[in-house]
Amino acid sequence: MPKDAPVDPRGPRFSAWMTTVVLAIVLLTGWWRLLAAQTVLFAMCAFISLKLNPWGHVYRFAVQPRLTPTTEREEAAPLRFAQGVGFVFALIGTLGYATGLTALGTVATSLALVAALLNAAFGLCLGCEVYLLLRRYAPALARPQ
């Protein structure tokens, strides 16, 4: 798996706000194709490269030039872990909505939204909070990459 370079930590926060908005639209409309697109996006970021995240490009071209530069950098591994967790919930949500199990779709999407909003608003590091728990209770899901 290719390794991403460390990133400006404000980029992922911006991206998390955008993800929160997308997931909120899915909850309000039940539009499963939008959730499917978000699932693909999570998968590309988690399993291929963070560079494939379009919100990252929007941040670099439209937001970053307006902000004071920072030398602070964040490692890519925690971000990709979080995208992987988002992928699992979004996938379950998509399958739920698409197969008529709307309750499952709603619950999974809500959980993904909670995680995205915690990241956006509070800078929550999902990998810090759940990695050791996953290793303990679901070892197969949390093999280091």
Partner: peptide, 23 residues
């Protein structure tokens, strides 16, 4: 309508967890 309640619930849960973690 369920979606609206789910969204409000998610916002409330995220707020509560966020405040707890910060503390």
């Amino acid at each position: 309508m369920t979606g609206v309640w789910a969204l409000l619930g998610a916002l409330a849960v995220a707020g509560a967890i966020g405040v707890l973690l910060k503390a």
